[in-house]
Design a protein around this nucleic acid. Structure first.
Lengths: 217, 217
DNA sequence: CTTATTTTCTTCATCCATTGCAAATTTGCA
DNA sequence: TGCAAATTTGCAATGGATGAAGAAAATAAG
């Protein structure tokens, strides 16, 4: 099934990620050069770029995966489930994924969280990745409620939910001491926003009813 | 008041901005080097960096200004005004500022909008600037309603509002033909989200009443 | 108007991320 | 074992960013 080639590649990949995190911990993100990371992982600098498209993407190595799983979840709308119901499940599941931290040790995951919230270039790349994900999630939500939510409504819902969670976490950062408190902040922001979005549920439901009547007639 | 020094500096600043936009239009953002921009504006490459901290910041030269004006607006809460009332005024004013486009001609402003929505590095920097602004706006909202909105609520409100507007604009981009339609999308997202946030108004008002009673007793 | 002082600009050198290319190496398979 | 495909590597070049020192310009002083 998995030949030597694939196994070796995966090993190198992990080696690069772990070497990078180790060095970031020691000397800081900006102060660590790609040459050092590559040397630590025992590959050439050039090879680094056949594994990751850049220094930042190494840190977000699992974001594509996360997005795909989130999109899969968005395709599991249950009968009668309202938009906020589906979004609520998305929030719960995302928090679980976030807490597990993509196959990293607890220490590594914590370091990454710290880096991602403080290093400007990482913050910027993270926001871009998150934004692109949101666009796709919005389309997925729109598709999950055909004829019930238009694209602007779906995008507003996703943007509001994720926007609120993200900003609440960042703005409240100083009043938070543990990862658990950070999760708590995110959860509260999500509840608050989902409450506000219930009006959309009504709208979607009434459109669905109208649609039924249309088909029946 | 304004000596030769200041005037000259402002002229160079404008020259750099205009040279840059002209070149971006001709050859594209990524294909234009700082050396070319500097040459076009008749300064050395090194001087570019004493006017702007980087290639991206040139494009966002007016964002600091915008933020300051937005923060001023957030400090003008009227008696009895609810959180969503203040936020509604912020939305209206922001749209006005966005449409006037920071002292650029209509063509320049349009070019900038196009660049900012399509060039990944500009998108990323823009998202970072916007995010930092949101953190400050959240604190400003919190301060505008002392004892009525906690920081997480304020951040959720700001994050939801701006998150919804931004994502709705981006997700709906293909169905939009003019700047006016883009503004329409943003407005609809804002209405939708502000509607949902009215629950916060109630909560804030009841806390204010409780506070009054507390003081009265 | 001339000199001294402060501010700004330029030149030069350097670092580092990123990319293209061609040679060298490793792996999968016959 | 030997060949073809996939990978890795070294090398060179580009371009953004930054530090330092001296030249140039603007302003203040006399």
């Amino acid at each position: 099934m998995v030949g030597l080639r694939e196994r070796k590649k995966e090993r190198t990949r992990r080696a690069l990620i772990e070497a990078a995190l180790r060095l970031f911990e020691e000397k800081g993100y900006a102060e660590t050069t790609l040459a050092e990371i590559a040397a630590e992982a025992e590959v050439s600098t050039r090879t680094f770029f056949s594994y990751f498209s850049g220094k930042e993407d190494l840190v977000y190595y699992d974001s594509q995966d996360r997005l795909e799983r989130a999109l899969e979840l968005m395709a599991t709308r249950r009968p009668e489930e309202a938009p906020t119901g589906l979004l609520h499940r998305l929030v719960d599941q995302s928090i679980i994924w976030a807490v597990q931290g993509g196959g990293l040790t607890f220490e590594e995951a914590e370091l990454r969280t710290r880096l991602v919230m403080t290093e400007p270039s990482l913050q910027a790349r993270g926001l871009l990745l998150l934004f692109d994900s949101q666009v796709k999630l919005a389309k997925a939500l729109h598709d999950a409620f055909p004829g019930e939510l238009d694209l602007v409504e779906a995008a507003s819902a996703v943007g509001a939910l994720i926007g609120a969670m993200k900003l609440a976490m960042m703005a409240n950062l100083e009043n938070v001491r543990s990862i658990n408190e950070l999760v708590g902040t995110a959860r509260r922001a999500a509840e608050l926003t989902l409450d506000g979005l219930r009006a959309l549920d009504e709208r979607a439901a009434s459109r669905a009813r109208a649609d039924q009547r249309g088909i029946a007639s």
